[in-house]
Design a protein around this nucleic acid. Structure first.
Length: 286
DNA sequence: ATGGCTGTTATCCG
DNA sequence: CCGGATAACAGCCA
């Protein structure tokens, strides 16, 4: 569920469930997701700590915990990332763990499960990844000027460029295509060649696309229970009787050959930096 | 069924 | 520095 809106919706879901809970035990089924932490270090850090907040930064989940050490209150931060296929949810302790459980936290009668089929995600006390991020696209700091600055020296295609987390923190493959379609910008255009009106439109489009996806994900019913039905992968809109998120909200992503919602011409698919890009050749011109 | 595709990112090259 | 390719991994689909 990995892009910014999906993480935001998940964080809003998890925050009230986790806040106040105490970690009784830590179990690491896949140690690659905790690197550079070790099992021992993670367990030593977390056991006895209490969740005080869950926040989002770009596509990362930031878990804040506190623990009493002697007479001192100690703050702990944990970084979560879902990679391509990660999920996080609470499960009654009696329920057997899913096949691809990567890390589980014992919270008493429930456990927090981080599950990841491909193990591309992360769950660690190493926060260094946060240092490499650009502005939050929905914050005040993300101004048109900032975006223009980050684009003007790059010869990379604009699509690949806005997926760089140092340029726009939280945009991924889906919303990159969506934002460019909304802004009417061809995905292969070199970033530095965007006109000022195009940068203006892109800035607005990024915010609109992300905001709408968050609103959508906050509105539709989701099941964060680990069963895989309506579990937060809301842009797929599966298990929604055919009227899911994708049908209603994604205008170009994964719609190769479908008629453009604006002009009716077939949506095209190309590959850039080994990822699929979808666009309308008629609506997205220089 | 074999191979190509998938929501991510770090790293290694030229 | 920049940008492209690849690797990490498992499952799904044609």
């Amino acid at each position: 569920m990995p892009e910014l809106p999906e993480v935001e919706v998940l964080v809003r879901h998890l925050a009230p469930l986790l806040t106040g809970r105490t970690v009784r035990g830590v179990s690491v089924q896949r140690k690659r997701v905790i690197r550079p932490d070790t099992r021992q270090r993670l367990a030593r850090t977390l056991v006895g700590a209490r969740f005080v907040a869950v926040e989002r930064r770009a596509k990362f989940l930031v878990f804040q915990l506190q623990r009493m050490r002697g007479r001192r209150r100690e703050s702990i931060r944990l970084l979560g990332h879902l990679g391509m296929t990660g999920r996080m949810y609470l499960l009654p302790s009696a329920v057997p763990l899913p096949r691809h459980a990567a890390v589980t936290l014992d919270l008493g009668r429930t456990r927090f499960v981080y599950e990841d089929r491909r193990y591309f995600g992360r769950f660690t006390t190493d926060l260094s990844a946060l240092d490499r991020l650009g502005e939050e696209p929905l914050s005040e700091e993300f101004t048109v000027e900032r975006l223009a600055e980050r684009l003007k020296r790059s010869s990379r295609s604009i699509k690949v460029r806005i997926m760089d987390q140092a340029v726009v923190a939280g945009i991924g493959n889906i919303y990159a295509s969506e934002a460019l379609f909304r802004a009417g910008i061809p995905p292969r255009k070199p970033a530095r060649q965007l006109t000022r009106p195009q940068v203006n439109r892109l800035h607005a489009a990024i915010r609109v696309v992300l905001r709408e996806a968050i609103d959508r994900g906050s509105t539709i019913p989701l099941d964060f229970d680990g069963t895989g039905r309506r579990d937060g992968l809301f842009y797929h809109g599966v298990a929604e009787g055919g009227s899911g998120y994708q049908q209603e909200c994604l205008l170009v992503y994964d719609r190769e050959g479908d008629p453009c919602t604006s002009c009716g011409r077939a949506i095209k698919r190309i590959v850039q930096a080994a990822r699929s890009t979808y666009y309308c050749a008629a609506c997205q011109r220089n």
